[in-house]
Simulated scan of single mutants.
Amino acid sequence: MSDSPPGAVDLLGVLAYAELTAFLKLAEDAAALAPSLTDRAALSDLAVAEYGHFELLRDRLAALGQDPEAAMAPFVAPLDDWHAQTKPGDWLEALVKAYVGTGIAGDFYREAARQAEPETRKLVDEVLAEESRSEFAVERVRAALAENPKDAGRLALWARRLVGEALSQAHRLAATRPELALLLVAGGAVDGTSDAGQIGIGRLFSRLTEEHGKRMSALGLVPGP
C-alpha cells in the first residue's frame, strides 16, 4: 500500500468491521423490533446492503495484500462495546440508532478518507452513502412522532446518548491508533495526546456535532443544549 498514507489500512479495517456489525444489528432489530412484516423486510434490505459494503471493504483489503481479519481486529472491542452500550429498547430507538448513531460514525470515517488515496476515498464514499437508510428512518420516525409527539423528548435524549458514546469511542480510537489520527487531522504529526492533536480533533468533533444537528432536524427532533 505504498501509495496510501499511513492509517489507510486502519480506516478500511474499522469501516469493514463497522459494516459487518451494522449488518448483524440491523438483521437482529428487524427480527426482534420491527412492528410489521413490511418494516421487517425493509430493514432486512438495509442489512443486506450493509453486508455488501462489508464485502467490498474486505475485498479491497485483500487486494492490497492485507489480512482482512487482522485489519479489523483492533476495532472489534470498541465497536462491540458501543453496540452493547447502545442497545435499542424499541423500534423507534432502533431507527434513530440506524440513522443518527451510524450517521455520525460515518462522518468520522469520511473525515479520515479525505486524506486517503483516491481509490480508497471513492470506496469509502460509496460504502457510506446513506440515502436509503436516511429515507427509511426519517419517514418512519416522523410518522410516529406525528401520531405520538410525546416520543420526541425521549428520542432526543436517546440520540444524545448515542452521539456521546460514539464520540467517546472515536476519541479513544484516535488516541490509540495514531496513524488513523493522522488521517483525521491534516498537517503535522498527531498522536492523539499532543496539544495540536487535541485541538485538531476537537475541531473535528465540532464538525461531527454540527452534522448530528442536521440529522436531528431531519427526524423532527430538536438537539438538546
Rank of each mutant, 00 (worst) to 15 (best):
T176Q: 05
P5K: 04
G200Q: 06
Q198L: 15
E135S: 14
I104N: 00
E211Y: 15
A152K: 04
A32L: 14
D67K: 00
K25E: 13
A22F: 12
L33H: 04
E165N: 01
K150I: 07
S217G: 09
V9Q: 06
D80T: 07
I201T: 12
A70F: 05
D67W: 04
L95P: 07
H53E: 15
Q85G: 11
P225D: 15
A181Q: 02
E69N: 10
A159H: 08
L204I: 09
L46M: 06
R161I: 09
R177K: 06
G89F: 00
A27L: 12
L46A: 08
R177H: 04
S132M: 06
D10C: 02
A94T: 05
S194D: 01
G103P: 02
K214G: 08
L46F: 02
Y109W: 10
W158D: 08
A63R: 03
F205K: 00
R114A: 01
E130K: 12
V141D: 00
V141A: 02
T176S: 12
G7C: 03
A98K: 07
Q115F: 03
R160H: 03
Y109Q: 03
A181Y: 00
D151W: 05
L79P: 09
S168C: 09
A186D: 13
P223E: 08
L162Y: 11
E111P: 07
V100R: 03
A34E: 09
S168A: 13
Q85C: 00
D45A: 15
A170F: 01
D45Y: 09
F108A: 07
E179F: 05
S134E: 15
Y109V: 12
E93F: 00
E131L: 12
E69V: 09
S44P: 03
V124I: 14
I199W: 13
T38S: 15
Q169N: 08
P88T: 05
G187T: 09
D3M: 14
E50R: 13
H171I: 04
R207K: 09
L221M: 08
N148M: 05
V124H: 05
A218R: 10
A22P: 10
G7F: 01
G7W: 02
K214H: 08
K87R: 13
G164T: 07
Y99H: 12
V9R: 13
V9A: 14
L61V: 05
D67E: 02
L11S: 07
D80C: 11
F108C: 04
T21E: 15
A105Y: 01
Q66H: 11
A84I: 01
G200D: 00
A22V: 10
D195Y: 10
E55C: 06
E117C: 12
D151E: 15
R58H: 15
W158Q: 05
Q115T: 14
P78H: 09
R177Y: 01
